[in-house]
Design a binder for these strands. Structure first.
Lengths: 148, 148
DNA sequence: GACATCTGATTGCAACTGTAACGATCGTGA
DNA sequence: TCACGATCGTTACAGTTGCAATCAGATGTC
């Protein structure tokens, strides 16, 4: 069965994407745990809360990260127990809850970011030429905005 | 704090890769379940067993897929219960076990492959130009083979 | 203002995962 | 041959996820 080269190359790209994602996220997670006792998903939460100015409603946090609302409830549970975030009732909506960075959370983020950003550069971005990164980013945006 | 455009673009590429992976794997998994009652990880196992001629030692299966040995033990447990694979003792090594495709497993693979390949083309490979796919594949190979 | 409807967040349950430890078997060197 | 460490696959346990159901509070309609 003959398969055109162009199709094979595209399929390779997909398969390789899966491998890259798997290998890099595992390594980065392990690295963050070893250096800071921080899970990669907790790190993502810290980043998003910080980017939003320190706090987000639970559903906004779910949108900003790649987690479901259920996940957010439980991740915030654990992070609250660890002292990295606190819950605050939303005064403007009786149903709502904010997840807010604590100072320990901010500090943890500042420390872990050094490790993690270096890790991304070392393992990924630093290995891409400017043109490759641009090509990739453009293609990924197309993939994400094509929804059918 | 000023960040060079080149770095930002590369970081975007990483972030977008995470989003693409998340969205596409979820959609493909859902699609396979709806159409065939098959999980994406089971599909991967079927593909690898088939590519290897029908059977693989457990540790070879772990290497061929993105799963750990523990995962393979348990995935094969469930797939065996579902009749898609069977375990066979390895005669050449008393510790060894083969996971082998059943005819139901082969049939399931043939059916599901139609759905899944179309899905990949629709959501990913079909949205990439030949040049983009080649660039991406080359860059990903570089990332995977650079282990420091 | 009372009703149904919708939304935000959480919970219960069953399924799944990661880590470390286990028993069985293998290969090697003394 | 025997003792040793290495490898193969599995298992125990605790932690984590996905889905559906739930509860409290908000919104819209008449």
């Amino acid at each position: 069965m003959k398969v055109p080269v162009i199709v094979r190359q595209a399929m390779d790209a997909w398969r390789l994407l899966l491998e890259v994602h798997h290998e890099l996220t595992h390594e980065m997670d392990r690295e963050l745990r070893e250096a800071h006792g921080l899970r990669l998903d907790w790190y993502d939460v810290l980043v998003q809360l910080n980017a939003a100015g320190g706090r987000l409603r639970m559903h906004e946090l779910a949108d900003a990260t790649l987690f479901s609302r259920t996940d957010c409830t439980r991740i915030v549970d654990r992070m609250e127990r660890a002292g990295l975030v606190v819950r605050e009732r939303a005064t403007e909506d009786g149903r709502g809850v904010y997840a807010a960075l604590t100072s320990a959370g901010s500090r943890m983020l500042r420390e872990a970011a050094v490790t993690h950003v270096r890790s991304i550069e070392q393992r990924f971005t630093g290995l891409l030429s400017e043109a490759e990164a641009a090509t990739m980013a453009a293609a990924f945006r197309r993939v994400l905005t094509t929804d059918d």
